[in-house]
Simulated scan of single mutants.
Amino acid sequence: MNDEPPAQITDEPRGCLFALSQPPLMFFLAFVATLVLLTAVHDLYRW
């Protein structure tokens, strides 16, 4: 038998900076920003 109390799980609130530190989210946001930038340049300068 294990007489030790269960480990406490700390549910600390994680804010926006934690979310932005995740690489998959940053790759997705960079991809979307690139698409927006390309469409803006295409609309401004029609070659």
Rank of each mutant, 00 (worst) to 15 (best):
G15D: 04
A33Y: 05
S21K: 09
Q22I: 01
T39R: 15
V41K: 14
A33T: 08
E12G: 00
E12D: 06
P6G: 06
W47Y: 09
P23Y: 02
R46K: 13
F31D: 12
V32E: 09
M26G: 06
R46C: 10
L38A: 11
G15F: 01
E4V: 03
A7W: 03
Y45F: 15
Q8A: 11
F27P: 04
Y45R: 14
V32T: 07
L44S: 13
P6L: 09
T34H: 10
T10S: 08
F27D: 15
R46E: 12
L38Y: 06
V32Q: 08
L20Q: 07
C16T: 06
D43I: 08
Q22G: 02
R14D: 00
V36D: 09
L37T: 06
D3K: 11
G15N: 04
L38K: 05
P13Q: 01
H42A: 13
L17C: 15
L29Q: 08
Q8F: 07
P5N: 12
P6Y: 04
R46Y: 07
V41G: 11
F28D: 14
Q8G: 02
L38H: 09
L38E: 09
T34D: 07
P23R: 06
Y45T: 11
N2D: 14
L29D: 06
P5S: 11
W47R: 15
L29C: 12
F18R: 02
P23M: 05
E12T: 02
P13N: 01
M1D: 14
T34G: 13
D43W: 14
F27I: 15
N2F: 03
P23S: 03
H42K: 15
P23Q: 06
T39P: 00
L25T: 03
D3P: 07
V41T: 11
V41D: 10
R14N: 03
L37F: 11
L29R: 02
I9Y: 05
T10Q: 09
Q22F: 05
Q8E: 10
A7Y: 03
W47L: 13
F28E: 13
C16V: 07
R46T: 04
F18W: 09
L29W: 04
W47S: 14
I9V: 10
D11H: 06
R46I: 03
F18D: 13
V36G: 11
T34S: 14
L25A: 03
R14S: 04
T34W: 09
P23I: 02
T39K: 13
L29Y: 03
L35P: 01
A7P: 04
A19F: 01
L20C: 13
N2P: 00
N2Q: 08
E4H: 09
M1F: 12
N2S: 12
A33G: 13
V36M: 13
L35V: 07
A33N: 11
L29T: 01
D11R: 01
T34F: 10
E12H: 00
P13H: 01
A19I: 05
D3A: 11
F27S: 15
P24W: 00
P5I: 04
R46F: 05
L35Y: 04
L20V: 06
